[in-house]
C-alpha cells in the first residue's frame, strides 16, 4: 500500500518538477530580458516545438522497449528528398496539384515506415542491439540521400505544401495542431491499445512477456514502424517549414530528441515513459533554448549546457529508481 501512494506521488511529482522548472525558466528569462514574455516569442516557441516534438515521440517509442532509434533524422531526410522529387516531377513551378502533394506525402510516409520496418526486423530477428542497427540504418539512409542529391539541396514546393509548416489556423500554427493530434493519438495508443500495454510490459521484462505468449518479433517490428509514422509526420512538417530538403537537414535534432525523451521521464532501459512527461520536457527545453538565444549566450556553451542537462536528468532519474 505504502508503495502505491509512493509511486503515484512520484509520477505526479515528475510532471510537477518539470512544470516548476518551466515557470522558473520563464521568470528567469523575463527578468533578464523582458521581451521573453511577449506573444511574439511564445508563438515562435509554439512554432518550434512541433518538429522536435514529433522527433522526440518517434524516439520515445523504441526507447519504451529499451531500444533507441538513431536513424530518425536520416530517415526523415530520405523521405523528404523522395517526396520533394515526386512533387518536382509532377507539379510545375508555381503550379498547384493537391493530389500529387498527397501522393508525395504518402511516399514520404512509406519510406519512413519501411525504414522503421527494417530496423524492427533486424532488431527482432537477429537480436542485434537497436543502437547498432539504427546507427547502421542512419548511415545507409544518409548515404542514399547524399547519392540522390549529390550533396545538394532540393526545393520547389506548391503553396498547398508550404502552408503546412508556415500558415496558421485561427492563429495557431498548423504544425502545432498536427503535433497535438499526433501526441494525443500516441497517448491513446500507449494507454488504451493492446499494443501499447504489451509495449510497456515488454520494455519492463521481455522474458516474462514472452512467457505470457506475446509475439515479440511482431511487437518489435510494429514498434519501429509506429516510430516511422512519427518520423514521417516530422519530415513533412520540417520540409514544409524549411521549403527545402537535403541529406543534412535537422542534424542537431537527433541528440536533442534523446535528451528531451530522458528529461521527460523515458527510462532508457525500457518500460517507462509518458507522453505528458515528453510534452512538459519539450516546453521546458524550448523555453530554455529560446531564452539562451535571446540572452545571446555563446552557442557552443549552449551545447555543453545541453549535455549537462542530459547527464543531470539521467542522474536524477536513476537516483529515484534506486
Amino acid at each position: 500500500m505504502k508503495e502505491k501512494t509512493g509511486k503515484n506521488i512520484l509520477s505526479g511529482s515528475e510532471d510537477l518538477m518539470l512544470i516548476v522548472l518551466i515557470v522558473g525558466c520563464v521568470i528567469f528569462f523575463t527578468a533578464m530580458k523582458p521581451s521573453f514574455f511577449s506573444p511574439g516569442n511564445f508563438s515562435s516557441i509554439a512554432r518550434q516545438i512541433p518538429e522536435i516534438g514529433l522527433f522526440t515521440l518517434a524516439m520515445m517509442i523504441p526507447m519504451m522497449v529499451g531500444g533507441i532509434d538513431l536513424s530518425v533524422i536520416a530517415s526523415a531526410n530520405l523521405g523528404s528528398i523522395l517526396m520533394t522529387m515526386y512533387m518536382n516531377s509532377h507539379i510545375e513551378k508555381g503550379g498547384e496539384n493537391v493530389p500529387a502533394v498527397i501522393v508525395s506525402i504518402l511516399i514520404c510516409a512509406a519510406v519512413c515506415i519501411f525504414v522503421g520496418f527494417l530496423n524492427g526486423l533486424i532488431v527482432a530477428v537477429f537480436r542485434i542491439p537497436a543502437m547498432l542497427v539504427t546507427l547502421g540504418m542512419q548511415m545507409v539512409t544518409t548515404g542514399i540521400a547524399l547519392g540522390i542529391t549529390r550533396g545538394g539541396t532540393l526545393s520547389g514546393y506548391p503553396e498547398s505544401f508550404t502552408g503546412i509548416g508556415n500558415n496558421a489556423f485561427l492563429g495557431i500554427p498548423n504544425q502545432f495542431i498536427l503535433f497535438v493530434i499526433a501526441a494525443a493519438a500516441l497517448l491513446v495508443i500507449m494507454q488504451k491499445t493492446s499494443f501499447g500495454i504489451k509495449l510497456r510490459m515488454y520494455g519492463s521484462n521481455a522474458v516474462a512477456t514472452k512467457f505470457s505468449g506475446i509475439d515479440d518479433i511482431s511487437l518489435l517490428i510494429r514498434t519501429h514502424m509506429l516510430s516511422g509514422v512519427y518520423v514521417a509526420i516530422a519530415a513533412v512538417v520540417m520540409t514544409s517549414r524549411l521549403t527545402s530538403a537535403s541529406a543534412g537537414a535537422g542534424a542537431n535534432y537527433l541528440m536533442r530528441a534523446i535528451l528531451i525523451a530522458v528529461l521527460g521521464g523515458v527510462d532508457p532501459n525500457g518500460g517507462k515513459g509518458r507522453v505528458w512527461g515528453i510534452i512538459w520536457a519539450l516546453i521546458l527545453f524550448q523555453c530554455l533554448a529560446t531564452g539562451l538565444n535571446l540572452l545571446r549566450v555563446n552557442s557552443y556553451i549552449v551545447i555543453a549546457l545541453y549535455g549537462v542537462i542530459l547527464l543531470l536528468s539521467v542522474f536524477v532519474r536513476t537516483r529515484r529508481a534506486a
Partner: peptide, 24 residues
Amino acid sequence: LLQGLVLNQNIQNNVVISVLNRLK
C-alpha cells in the same frame, strides 16, 4: 521474478497480458 511477472508493472497488466485480445 524473471519469467512469471513483470515486476515494475501493475497487477492488472500482469493479469490481463495474455488475454488482451478478449478485452477489446
